[in-house]
Nucleic acid binder design. Structure first.
Lengths: 243, 243
DNA sequence: ACAACCTTTTGATTTGCATCAAAGATTTTT
DNA sequence: AAAAATCTTTGATGCAAATCAAAAGGTTGT
């Protein structure tokens, strides 16, 4: 492949993924845009199952997912694992590393992936010059805090089926925002990983899938899921507003 | 009280609380320090039980707690409440509001409190001038993300007694960092609020307290708690490393 | 000082999910 | 293409925590 072709491919991808919001906040002139490109130092490919970073690794960069799908997880000292999130194209991972200069979680590719490596020093330098970039970095971190707040609500207050309904609705909504179907998805993670994220065992996840399927709310075939009755899912997740 | 006295009190408080890390990152010259004081616009007193901000309020400022104790919590549409954190002097609340310009949680004073109001526009403006302040703001947000990761581990993987042990150890450690006792504390929150934070019912919290007390690990008298055997608590929280 | 209210503790019972177990389904390896 | 490994489903059983209930302890208001 010619270098020109690669560059072209990059431009197309950046302008069509959420990453654009980080790399090129709206309202920049071409000169600024060119300088903002400097935030991305390199690309990195990660094979399915490989770690992008691990607990204890020193922190230098944030990563913007170009393609692929990741999970982040933390481990307790006695080996229990908690999946803290699933990330897809356009999302940023590595924010956990800023506070102590080393990562406190693992980021594992659930399928072959490519990320843009953004050395955090670059991000900070450019943030001081471009208030829009600065604001954007702050929003990304705040968004993650708010997301985790709602996961705490799930884990602390919701029952198994409510958790799975919320999970499916969230996943399909994010996929839809990326141009995929509102009703169909292929799960990139196992029942066990879903369970770890939602604080339940893989058998319970499987049973909840089967229950939804029996009720005609979804169609499940292994990792393929089709949402037949989105309103029923919303009602399970939140009995009040959809009653 | 004379104005001079107030100013003096402020200086003393700022240099002795964690807030200093935000207002005056280490290594600044006196001129810079003076400009950094501009980040704090005003003070605000909040009475016990009052809201510092509520879900839906428009976001303009971060708040640094000078004195007092807060809880933050989110509510589901059908009224279930999840406490997402307890905050004490020197800690920053309001980060949830950055992403969408309005708050997505409630901050409630658990005792009479005073906060420094830091208009976020000021924070961002000064961050662009002072890389140390910029770095500090990033670290504060990252720290919150990492904290929430570990709460997810608690909620997803730990049993009731492990959660309460972790909670007590975390509380006493933060109090100790503020000059309080390593072994004694007075809880500012009810059993119900502890339970909401830890994903369990108030009766379960009470039973776990009683169990620890029966085992001689702690002494409990209502909201007074004395930690008699910190190592036993650590062992409950994490069976492996302290075995 | 008393009444009203709220919080905490403790006991009895229920239940949702975990655990244990085993059989299919799917993917990977050889 | 068979064999091995992994993932998923489903059933039977057990248990930790929720729920229901009531009393005791503490706080607030008049």
């Amino acid at each position: 492949m010619k270098p020109e072709t690669i560059t072209e491919a990059i431009k197309v991808a950046c302008s069509s993924c959420n990453l654009r919001e980080l790399c090129m906040p709206i309202g920049f002139n071409p000169d600024d845009m060119q300088r903002l490109d400097a935030v991305v130092a390199t690309r990195r490919r990660i094979k399915q199952g490989d770690h992008l970073f691990s607990n204890g690794d020193s922190f230098t960069s944030l990563f913007a997912i170009r393609t692929g799908f990741f999970k982040t997880c933390v481990s307790s000292a006695d080996g229990r694992e908690q999946v803290t999130g699933f990330q897809m194209a356009g999302e940023i991972i590595g924010l956990d590393g800023i506070v102590s200069d080393y990562h406190s979680c693992n980021a594992v590719a659930l399928e072959d992936a490519e990320v843009c490596v953004m050395p955090f020093a670059n991000v900070e330098d450019l943030s001081r010059e471009f208030p829009q970039l600065q604001r954007h970095v702050h929003k990304i971190m705040s968004r993650e805090i708010v997301r985790e707040n709602s996961v705490m609500m799930l884990l602390g207050n919701m029952r198994a089926e409510e958790r799975l309904a919320a999970f499916l609705l969230n996943l399909v909504q994010r996929l839809h925002a990326r141009g995929f179907s509102q009703s169909e998805l292929t799960l990139r993670m196992s029942r066990e990983e879903i369970g770890s994220y939602l604080g339940m065992k893989l058998e319970t996840v499987s049973r909840a899938f089967s229950k939804f399927s029996d009720e005609g709310i979804i169609e499940v075939k292994q990792r393929y899921v089709r949402i037949i009755e989105p309103d029923a899912l919303k009602k399970i997740f939140n009995p009040q507003t959809c009653a």
